[in-house]
Amino acid sequence: MTGANKEYKILLIEDDEIMLKVTERILLKEGFKVIVAQNGKEALQKVEEKDYDMVITDLMMPYANGFEIISKIKGDSYGANIPIIIVSSLGNEDSIMEGFRLGVDDFLKKPIMAGELLIRVKRLLARKL
């Protein structure tokens, strides 16, 4: 299992430092490669580099919000089929609908269960193959 995850690169976008580090560690432990971005600007740079297989993103960040980043990803031929999970403390209906209309695959509201996140990540990656 651990070996199989090795080739996957996950772009993790999150502005809360703890959440970013901890989630990164969780994903690393499962054997994924993780690219991190701590704000909208870094995230857009990383998106430009087009070197990721999956995106986990927060919504509220400085410089550019999650929706904007998602639309950048989806608007590009590289990113169009990349699975995206939103992990956010925004949990009102409007935000969730906005996310799904933009084409994200999953929406997790904080607090999240780490196990659940991993299962969803793996399921989405399996579907991609």
């Binding site: 909208g40 509220m60 400085p62 550019a64 919000n65 904007e68 009102n92 409007d94």
Partner: peptide, 11 residues
């Protein structure tokens, strides 16, 4: 404008 769009608020 972008900075206004990144305000933290649900609605």
């Amino acid at each position: 404008v972008r900075s206004l769009l990144t305000l933290n608020y649900p609605k």
